[in-house]
Amino acid sequence: MTLDIPATDGRVAVVTGAAQGIGSSIAEYLAGQGLAVVLLDILPSVATTADRIGAAGYHQLDITDIPALQHAVHSTAQEHGRLDVLVNVAGTCGRQGFEDLDPATFGRDIDTNLTATAFACQAAVFPHMREQGSGRLVNIASVSGKVGGVGPVDPDGGGGRSGAGYASAKAGIINLSRWIARQVGGWGITCNVVAPGPIASPMAEGAEYGVASIPVPRMGRPAEVAAAVGYLIGPGSDYTNGTCLHVDGGMVMA
């Protein structure tokens, strides 16, 4: 759905997983910078979020439906005449222990986090960003993809830590983004990653992250992830390509 909200920046952005949490914060940040932002999410509340932040439009869809996902990206570019920014945030996070891990949960986390990210990027680049000769792809991974899951390890193998499918998918996003960055850099397009640590968001509710042991001993805020995205889509990042920016209070370093 397109909303009659003018943008002042002139650029057009798509944000997946934008109904709440980190995705909502990123979409709000971009809209506040004057971009025409189109929100994608499976949750019905995406409509409410779009209205609240002054978005240019929204699509309620399941991003694992790749044809529907790519149609939403293409239709955004066609309706607005361009597509400048894509931020892939949508994800799921199973928390099963290894013994209890099942193929459905593992596959869901791979499909939602990694596969959808790949094909959203494909739809943004071909043909829109390539024909423009410009564009910014930002994929949200996680430090789980760097350290093999975040949270205390249960010596008996129980759940609670971010799960195997999630950690595998987020690691995949980091390398996928590097692969894309090598392909698109010569076309005026960059592809980068933001890897949050423990962020106070709906996905993190009820989980224990042991934040007292990291150099900045607190949960991060969605707005801090949004600010990192803001750098990667801003004019000062033209020469930043294929990088992974940690927003984690020093968790990976520690």
Rank of each mutant, 00 (worst) to 15 (best):
S25Q: 13
I26T: 13
Y29L: 14
Y29T: 14
L30N: 07
L30T: 11
L30S: 00
A31I: 00
G32F: 02
G32R: 03
G32M: 08
G34T: 06
A36N: 08
V37F: 10
V37M: 01
V38S: 01
L39A: 08
D41P: 08
D41L: 11
I42N: 06
I42F: 11
L43I: 02
P44N: 12
S45T: 14
S45N: 12
V46K: 10
V46E: 09
V46H: 02
T48P: 02
T48V: 14
T48W: 03
D51C: 11
R52C: 03
I53G: 10
I53V: 13
I53C: 11
I53L: 12
G54W: 10
G54P: 07
G57Y: 04
Y58Q: 09
Y58N: 07
Q60I: 05
I63N: 01
T64L: 01
D65C: 00
D65K: 05
D65W: 02
D65F: 00
P67L: 13
A68C: 03
Q70D: 07
Q70W: 12
Q70K: 15
Q70N: 11
Q70S: 13
Q70E: 15
H71L: 12
A72L: 07
A72P: 06
V73E: 00
T76F: 03
A77S: 01
A77G: 12
A77C: 06
Q78F: 08
E79C: 13
H80Y: 13
H80C: 03
G81E: 00
G81N: 10
R82E: 01
R82S: 03
L83V: 03
D84L: 02
V85C: 04
L86H: 10
N88Y: 01
N88P: 12
N88A: 05
V89T: 14
A90G: 04
A90P: 01
A90F: 05
A90E: 07
G91K: 11
T92C: 04
T92Y: 05
C93A: 15
G94N: 06
G94V: 02
G94K: 01
Q96F: 02
F98W: 09
F98P: 03
F98K: 00
E99W: 13
D102T: 09
P103N: 11
A104H: 13
A104Y: 10
A104F: 07
T105Q: 03
T105E: 04
F106M: 08
F106Y: 15
F106D: 01
D111I: 06
D111V: 12
T112F: 09
T112P: 11
T112L: 12
N113Y: 00
N113I: 05
L114R: 13
T115V: 15
A116M: 14
T117V: 12
T117Y: 06
A118H: 15
A118D: 02
A120V: 05
A120N: 13
C121K: 10
F126W: 13
F126N: 15
